[in-house]
């Protein structure tokens, strides 16, 4: 049976050198990141090049993505949040595209590596901190002090708030990473059953229909998860950015 972990292996395509004992290489992960950038650029730039008043299919998709992310950001962070629109849009499109590309059999899923999702989550985390302090100054700390709390339980509340704030990048990144990882392992395991049973003669063929059906169903589910996790990552980003804009609860 095929190793379900094998698909997550990083393979060097070209090794570029070593920096501080760390190997730097152009890997399959890097290749798929750049493919995703290319696909998004093709959609957002190529499909909108004609600037048609009546959009074609691809231009419609580009405009729908634009308005979808804009509406999501505006509804959770208000009109002030629109200054982060390029960041949020890039995050959403990048995660969505690498998730979707990862569902093509034989490809690599960039977001199935914790280092990638952690990097993206930390980008949001530090954006919130730096912008929050830059815009609100000392008042940014009000984020940790909800108003209308009795003074004697305030220390506990502040402790919890700080803890939950600091754990944000962890939950933010692990959610995406774990979903993509688990989904791809499950798919691979069930697909592995199909080939394993298929090699066992006629009865095996019969038995293989069940995992085959499950694989088809799971693939559909994984498409939903791929979109949903990109959306969840985006909407959490919007909510965190809203904290930077309006720290008072």
């Amino acid at each position: 049976m095929a190793d379900p972990i094998h698909q997550f292996e990083i393979k060097n395509i070209v090794t570029l050198g070593h920096i501080g004992g760390q190997e730097i290489a152009f890997t399959n992960s890097a290749l798929y990141m750049l493919i995703a950038v290319g696909v998004i650029a093709l959609l957002m730039l190529g499909a909108t090049a004609s600037r048609s008043l009546v959009p074609g299919r691809l231009q419609s998709i580009a405009e729908l993505s634009y308005e979808f992310v804009a509406d999501t950001l505006r509804s959770s962070a208000g009109n002030e949040g629109m200054k982060f629109f390029p960041l949020v849009f890039t995050l959403f499109m990048f995660i969505l595209t690498v998730n979707m590309i990862g569902l093509i059999p034989g490809t690599f899923t960039v977001t199935s590596h914790i280092i990638v999702t952690a990097m993206l989550a930390l980008l949001v985390f530090f954006t919130v901190i730096f912008y929050g302090i830059y815009k609100n100054g000392f008042k940014f700390l009000k984020l940790f002090v909800p108003s209308g709390i009795p003074i004697y339980i305030l220390p506990l509340i502040v402790f919890i708030e700080v803890l939950s704030f600091l754990s944000r990048p962890i939950s933010h990144s692990v959610r995406l990473f774990a979903n993509m990882l688990a989904g791809h392992i499950t798919l691979k395991v069930f697909a592995g059953f199909v080939t394993m049973l298929g090699g066992m003669g006629f009865l095996g063929w019969l038995g293989a229909t069940l995992p085959l059906g499950l694989t088809v169903g799971l693939t559909a589910l994984e498409f939903l998860v791929a979109f949903l996790q990109a959306y969840v990552f985006t909407i959490l980003t919007c909510i965190y950015l809203n904290d930077a804009l309006h720290p008072g609860h």
Binding site: I10, E23, I24, S29, A30, V37, V110, I115, V116, M119
Partner: peptide, 14 residues
Amino acid sequence: QTFASQLLWLVIAF
């Protein structure tokens, strides 16, 4: 061991 490469290319791509 793969972190440095991934980080570098993620930064470039992003």
